[in-house]
Amino acid sequence: MPRFPVTPWKPYEPRFILPTFAGLDNRLGLSIPVWYRPLNLRYLRSLVAGSLKKNFIESVKDLGPELFSLASSGFSRKLRFKLHILSRRGDYLTSHVIPSAFEPGASFDIDLSKLLAELKLPEDDYLVVAVMSRGRMDGVRSSPASFSMTYLDQDNVAIYRTGAFARPLNEGRLKSHVGFTGINPKVIATQDVVSSVLLINHSSDPEYAFPAHPTSVLIREDGEQLQGDFGEIAPLGAREMSVADMFGPQVFDFLKPFNGRGTTVTTCRGMTLASLHLQRSNDNRRTLLGIEHSRPAHMNLAGIVQH
């Protein structure tokens, strides 16, 4: 039985998964730049160049539906959005299509907490797959700007922003991954603040069925390390683990000589994961102080010749 009742996204539709947190006001937004065009000369050139690398049949198969959709919209610059709500275990719950279309210069902005309540979902932590109708026609169909995820409690605002993409992820027939390495040098374990890592086992395949089992190592300034098990992340699910969850209550004493600071390096072979770093008050995850997505550090070495 398929996970989604209908096709949740087309291969060319940019998307990404974001978490919501119970007890916080969760918001999602995107301001579409005034200069956005789905197709311009630069992208057209890269499309043609990409197509020439494949055979004609493959190119038509890949590009046909997208170009047909663009043409049938009258080459509209307006963007549409839909949201699929999943449990943190990756189970599909419901979907919501935003009724309006948004033109360049306009902003899509939605109160997710209000939406979840309107969808009669009980207060809980969820995942939202945000899908947009099209992006820029570059190699990964990137969103023309960053989505903004805003989490509010009574007197604190935590925000992270990232793009949406239509690219093969954890879909073996399209792309194989060496593995995931997520580095968080912002780790804090003190009386006041405890860091968490939230990993999302994402995929471009709606029927993705492989759980992830990452492991993590906590490294302090003098090189001493603690090994930790991240636990299982369900396909299209997510899991948040604090450094106390991963490395036990001794983590506070372990990092104490270094002002409670350290770095986690989290790895998972053969698959890629989305990664968020959270700073929380040391109050059993009631307060989210700060959040940020991680960046793939290996990309910073791409310019160096290695043997």
């Binding site: 604190n156 700073q279 102080l289 700060g290 997505h293 960046r295 791409a302 310019g303 160096i304 010749v305």
Partner: peptide
């Protein structure tokens, strides 16, 4: 003696934490 690929540059990945005196922490990648 790291050699940089022709026409490329090597960018740096890092993060900043902005600690408010009142306890908030804002995070940013580079």
């Amino acid at each position: 003696d790291a050699k940089i690929r022709s026409g490329k540059r090597v960018t740096t990945g890092y993060y900043a934490q902005y600690f408010s005196q009142q306890g908030a922490v804002a995070l940013s990648h580079e």
